[in-house]
Amino acid sequence: MKTKMDFPTINQRRPDGMKENGKPYRVLIVDDSMFVTKQIEQYLTSEGFDVAATAVNGQDGLDKYKELYPNVDLVTMDITMPVMDGVTALEKIIEFDKDAKIIMISALGKQDLVKKSLLLGAKNYIVKPLDRKRVLERVLMTLKK
């Protein structure tokens, strides 16, 4: 006799935030806004990603990246921040790890800023306001690049 009911699994899909080995992708969020950090964190954790750390400016982001390395798969980087801006932090992280996967996330969509970030090694650029679907799509696209 069965002691436990076997329910059929409705959703057998592996969450997008999980690697094939069952471990989550580890993400570092760099943003000076508590609101934006929380928003990105919610999107990512809802798909099984592990937010390994959050940082409040570019310098903090660079320091945390070095601390986490090599156990960090992706960085989301704001641009306008105090102490050190996101473009400078991008440049310094790429200097340290040329294979770093960094997505710029900014309310500014100026063409020259987007171009500059991509030339410096950013893998993607998202213009705010953020939308859950779009963020997750770009994150996956970047991880698979």
Binding site: S33, S106, A107, V127
Partner: peptide, 21 residues
């Protein structure tokens, strides 16, 4: 609170940044 303030600040930032763009 602080989160509400950060949210309104971000709203102003997004609108201004889009206009600047």
């Amino acid at each position: 609170d602080d989160l509400a303030k950060a949210t309104i600040t971000e709203l102003a930032n997004m609108i201004t940044a889009q206009a600047i763009t």
